[in-house]
Design a protein around this nucleic acid. Sequence first.
RNA 1: GCCCCUGUAGCUCAGAGGAUAGAGCACCAGCCUCCGGAGCUGGGGGCGAGGGUUCGACUCCCUCCAGGGGCGCCA
Length: 547
Amino acid sequence: MIKDEITILLKEAVLEAQRRDLLPPVTMPDIVLERPQNPEHGDYASTLPLKLARSARMNPLTIAQNLVSLIQLPDEIDSIAVASPGFINFSLKSEWLTKQVEGIISSGERYGDVDLGKGAKVQVEFVSVNPTGPLHVGHGRGAILGSTLASVLASSGYDVVREYYINDAGGQMDAFYRSLYARYQQALGIDAQMPSEGYFGEYMMDIAREIIAEEGGKLSDKPAELGKIGVAKVMKTIKSDLEALGVSFDVWFSENSLFEQGQYDRVMAFLKERGYISEKEGAVWFTSTALGEDKDNVLVRSDGAPTYFATDIAYHYNKFIERGFSKVINIWGADHQGHVSRMKAVVSALGIDPGRLQIIISQMVTLKRGEMALRVSKRTGEIIILRELVDEVGPDVCRFFFLSHSADSQMDFDLELAKRHSSDNPVYYVQYGHARIASILRLAQERGIDYKEGNVSLLTGDSELALIRNMLQLPEVLELVASTLEPHHLPYYALDVATTFHNFYEKCRVISSDNALTSARLKLVEAAQIVLAKTLHLMGMTAPEKM
RNA sequence: GCCCCUGUAGCUCAGAGGAUAGAGCACCAGCCUCCGGAGCUGGGGGCGAGGGUUCGACUCCCUCCAGGGGCGCCA
């Protein structure tokens, strides 16, 4: 990337300045290159002189001038300018810019990929809702976040595994089994009491009725088998809801398997050996206080049942030690926030750098229909099902909307607004850009225009160069998203590219009587299509040829 | 009481310690003999409050105010 080359130039200039005594031997600050907001300030700007000024005890402008005088202009760069109070601004040469169009076309769908990960194995675990009911909109947010992050990481040189952890053990499952059993009995006309901690949603009755339709009443004396069938049905619904959103997984990992495969016993023995386990009040505890936590946590209840925390420890033991992921990314809802620090504590107790476990907390989603707020609760049955939302506004709108908010911010999703603006929507703005391009390329094909020999150096207009500059940012955006794990930059970038394209379209006629210019612009248009499609696909959205 | 997240335009949200804080929607005014008007151009309007660090703070630190979430032998 050109950005990296400029960084190297600056670094070398500092070292050279120090060799020539133009700069005292102070330590090198981090060299950050910025994209100036004002195009008059060039393509990249560095504040390195300002950062050096204090420790070097020199005027930043003098430092800037000294550094610039030591840099030999490479081919890509048109000019390097010093600006007060101490900026160094780099402008790219338009010949170099236009040449990049060819590079984008030859890279195709792989354009923008960067090798940040260098093949490192990384796991993204997301959704992981226990199979007790359908997904609600909050889960949808996590699903979109996780699947997009996984795509970006895969394009950034990581070996990515997308994983769903099925909580098919523990107390919540018990409540589910007992609720289903009660509903089943009731549907058969037998008087049965729902457990007070049970699942009262309508869908439980649907499942019971469905099972009766398929199996009849023969499961009345086989609650275990009934439960199994119920879970399978819920999982099937969950999978299809996720598919409707364009979300898929490589691994569906069962919590139960941690007991069957022995990870649970192994990790408990491991922790005991290291002295992290204590017993009090009839229960087994993880002594997280020894690792700086506020309090200890129960691993095995006094009735002998392991907690969710205990199996999660076994699961992370499996992730890091048995499967050897160098990085594990978990996406959790805001209600799991309290689980973060003790999980990190556990990981370090396992002898693993807790920095290798990255947990993204996605904040709550509240749904509104106009002024009416809708509460989301699975237990009481007042649930806004993800599927309803997807069916109502479509997966693309859903994905774009969720993605354009940072995970840290709470969201209000106004269904009414989403539908009302459905045709006047940033999603369509971006997709329309892609469809417009497709239509231009179709026309070119119909007219039999072969633009392979087009000369891109004819692309000298402001709007043409602006579009190229914009397209060249894709690898930087990927790097940003992969390193910060903040996919919300993608939709904003997509919007940006679409805007510069629409602007170009307005100013420049692509297919005209000027054959040479037509060929050159068709190349530009094809490159723009590649960039828009790639960005949309990273977000898990479609790039329509027609709308 | 303690911990986490948030407070930026009328609304929904971006903003990587730097130069004149951005986008979409809404509102107002313009733009079609020609490749898709789901488009383009222009306009009005904003960093919760107060301190601090810094050459420079929406950004980092502290206090306060406001909203959301968490502090289980639930998951």
